[in-house]
Simulated scan of single mutants.
Amino acid sequence: MTGWLDGYSALVTGGGSGIGRAVAERFVTEGASVTVLGRDLTRLTEVVKSSPAPSRMHAVEADVRSSEQLHQAVAETVERFGKLDTLVANAGIWDYQRQLTRLSAEELEATYDELFSINLKGYFLAAEAAWRELVKTRGSIVMTLSNASFYVNGGGPVYTASKHACLGLMRELAYELAPKVRVNGVACGGMNTDLRGPEALSMKDRSLADSFAKKPADAAPPPIPLYDSSTDPRDFTAPYVMLASREQSGPITGEAIRVDGGIGVRGFARAAGGDHL
C-alpha cells in the first residue's frame, strides 16, 4: 500500500458494510485512524475487531438523520484521534428500481421521505457537523455518489433523484467551503454489497448482495463495457484514498470520479422504459 493517509483522521458514515466498510479498512491500511458510524453497533464492532489496526478504529452507533448524533460522532473522533481530516459521507439505501407507475401515492410519499432523509439529508447533516473541524485541518469531504447521479435507470425515480441531488450538493459545498475544505465524490457502479431498501416498501431486510449470490453462472453479462470487472467493494476504494489525500489531490474540488465500468459510454439498453404501460 502507499501510505497516502499516514497520520490522517477520518469519519465514515455507513461504515458497517459495503463500500463504507471497504473504504474504512482501506484508509486504515493507508495509515489513517478511522471512526466508522452506523446504526448497528454489533456490526461496527466486528469491523473494528477485524481491522489490521484495531487501535486506529473507533465505532460509533448513530443515525445520519440525527444532527445531534452526528455532532457527537465528530466530537468523539476529535477526542480520540486529535483532529478530523476527512469526512466520507456514504450511508444510503436503494429503491430497487421501483418505478413511479408501480408505487401507490402512499408508498411514494413514505419512500421519498425515508430515502431522501438518509441519502441526501444525511449528507447535509454530516457536512454541517464536520465542516468546522475540517476547516482547521484544511481537510476534505468525499461523498459516495452513483452512476445514478448522472444517468437514469440506476435506480427508480426516488433513488435517481436523490443521487442527482447529492451531486448538486457536492458541487455547491465545494464552492461554499473553498478554499479551506475540498469536496469531491466517487460515483460508483453496481457492486456486491449489503445495500438495503426502504422500510416504507418492506425492503429493510432485502440485500443487494442476494442478487449477486443468486445469479446463475450462465447469466448474460450486465450491459456495461467492463462487464467482467470486479464487483468487490474493495476494488472501488482507490479514488477515495486519492481524493482524501492532500498531497495527491490538493488542487481537486467539485469533481466526481466515475467508477462504474464505463456505463456512461455504452448508450441506452432500450429506447424507452415505459413499454409496459
Rank of each mutant, 00 (worst) to 15 (best):
Q69D: 00
R138C: 10
G155K: 01
I141C: 01
G185W: 02
N153V: 02
T77Y: 07
E109A: 15
I118F: 11
G82V: 09
A105G: 09
L169K: 07
E106V: 13
T144Y: 00
K163P: 09
Y123K: 00
Q99K: 14
E172P: 00
K136Y: 01
P179M: 12
S66R: 05
F81W: 00
D85H: 14
Y112F: 15
E114L: 10
G154T: 03
K163D: 09
H71P: 00
H71M: 10
Q72D: 14
G154M: 01
G82A: 06
S140Q: 04
L145F: 00
S162W: 03
V142Q: 00
F124A: 01
L84D: 04
S140T: 09
G139F: 03
N153I: 00
L108W: 13
A110S: 14
W131N: 11
S117T: 12
L134W: 09
T111H: 07
E61S: 10
L84A: 04
V135H: 13
S67Y: 11
H164F: 15
T101E: 14
E109I: 08
L145E: 08
D63V: 07
T86S: 03
G156I: 01
F116E: 05
V60A: 02
N192I: 03
Y175G: 10
V74R: 10
G155I: 04
S104C: 14
A178Y: 14
T160D: 15
I93M: 04
C188P: 00
L100N: 09
V60E: 08
K163T: 11
F116D: 03
E128Y: 01
D113R: 12
L167Y: 13
N119Y: 05
L169F: 13
E107M: 05
G190I: 11
G156D: 02
N90Q: 06
G190A: 15
V142L: 00
L145D: 10
E106Q: 15
K121N: 12
Y175V: 15
D95P: 02
G185H: 06
R182K: 11
G185V: 03
N147W: 04
D63E: 12
E172Y: 00
V183H: 09
C166Y: 03
T77H: 05
N153H: 13
F116Y: 14
